[in-house]
């Protein structure tokens, strides 16, 4: 069992708002993240997959394929998450929910290796890990 981690960066905007909360509650809970015009981050994504090393190739996963999947499913960036990414039409695009959404996009696409962890850095000081258990 070997673990491979691929890092990537993407940039997107978002804001935090729950329509079930009053405007005061939204401001109190989400603070400046509640600004409806949105704000952005440079996100750093780390995707870790695990599996046995193929004795023929010496690879745990074909990195070309992994990069293609990442590019197609996640890295089409410069988006306003609330308005352009269907997962966040109803869910608040927190970094927690972003990590879950990325997991749900990637897990079914991986063939040879198994998804182990999705880590999303919102800033250098804050990251979320998701291991697939909802």
């Amino acid at each position: 069992m070997v673990y491979l981690t691929r890092k990537a960066e993407f940039s997107a905007s978002h804001y935090y708002h729950n329509p079930d909360f009053t405007p005061e509650e939204n401001r109190r809970i989400f603070g400046k993240c509640n600004n409806p015009n949105g704000h952005g981050h440079n996100y750093t994504l780390e995707v870790t997959v695990k599996g046995d090393v193929d004795p023929r190739s010496g690879f745990v996963v074909d990195l070309k394929q992994l990069k293609e999947i990442l590019n197609r499913e996640v890295l089409d960036d410069h988006r306003f998450l609330n308005k352009e990414v269907p997962e966040f039409f109803t869910r608040i695009p927190t970094t927690e929910n972003l990590a879950i959404a990325i997991w749900q996009r990637l897990a079914p696409k991986l063939k040879t290796a198994q998804l182990h962890r999705v880590r999303v850095y919102e800033t250098q000081d804050l990251f979320v890990d998701f291991y697939g258990e909802v």
Binding site: V2, Y3, L4, T5, K7, A8, T48, K50, H116
Partner: peptide
Amino acid sequence: TMMNSFEYAGGAEI
């Protein structure tokens, strides 16, 4: 590289 890393724990789960 800065983008690719690998981990091994003797076959154990990490």
